[in-house]
Amino acid sequence: MLRLPEFRYVKAGSLKGAVRALSDLGPDAMVVAGGTDLYPKMKRGQFTPRYLVSLRFLPELKGIRPRGREGMWIGAGETLTALCEHHAIKGIFPSLAQAAGSVSTPLLRNMGTIGGNLFVDTRCNYYDQTFFWREAAGFCLKKDGEICLVAPRSKKCLAVFSSDTAPVFCSLGAMAILVGPGGERRVLLEELYRDDGIGFLTKGREEVLRGVVIPRAAFGVRNVYLKLRRRGAFDFPVLGVAAAMSFSKENICLSARVVLTAVSSCPKVVEGAAAVVVGKRVDRTAIEEAAEVAARASHPVDNADMDYWYRKRMTKVYVRKALALLAGLES
């Protein structure tokens, strides 16, 4: 049986306490909420914390409140099940329900949290392996090694950003609420990410995500999430397309956002694709052009399931489909 290494489990009594524990314990500490990303990685030796600070029971991280003054509040500690089954979410942001409901399996979604999915570690076929395998392969840049095994000349780790919910939140302009030693700050969620397989998060190590707010402006926007993967369950996205569009009464596109996941080490906001359709009556030609632009921004490499040539090709197909759905050209 694969087992966990030894560690100390610190049950934080409050969010403040958790942040303090993170500061006090230093870089040997990690937070744990659902544990569905963390524990497998500890069993495989990818993460080696000496302390785990548990956010599991913190009331500050709970709640899904659709009608707040600023918009929709979603606590980082809510489970993916709670999100995908929430009545208001399903009604207003079906893309979010689709994305959350597509993560792994019903079992895992009962454990895994929103925060966990937003910060899910980047993935790579050379990295998500046991210690034995990684040692046999020669360790990689992301853990214990010097070179990237996918592209030995790359200075940067190319591990794939694999969150389903992050691109959707980004497409809806969501804000992240972070609590750190200096107090609370809010930041546009997309700004928390950068295209680096190792340092893919810009947040401070001691900062904890309290929750996410989807602004009121996003209410009424049409939104969709499409996911490419091998099976209908278990599998991470090897491509995800989150799209959100709003239309005038005359069916002119007023705003558009296209965000890709699993094509680089962070959610990829494809502004060029949105620019093609905004201000237009969205027809097949415009969609084709937008999809073309999105495909150019997609750079899958050979480190996830399915042929990377195919994944790149699918970017266009999936973006086309997503936009056509929003424009009412397909159902």
């Binding site: 998500d128 046991t130 395998w133 091998r230 099976r231 369950a233 599998d235 399931d305």
Partner: peptide, 14 residues
């Protein structure tokens, strides 16, 4: 080296 010696990566239909 085996490419994908795990239940997640070896694709068994659900």
């Amino acid at each position: 080296l085996h490419k994908l010696p795990s239940m997640l990566d070896y694709k068994s239909p659900t």
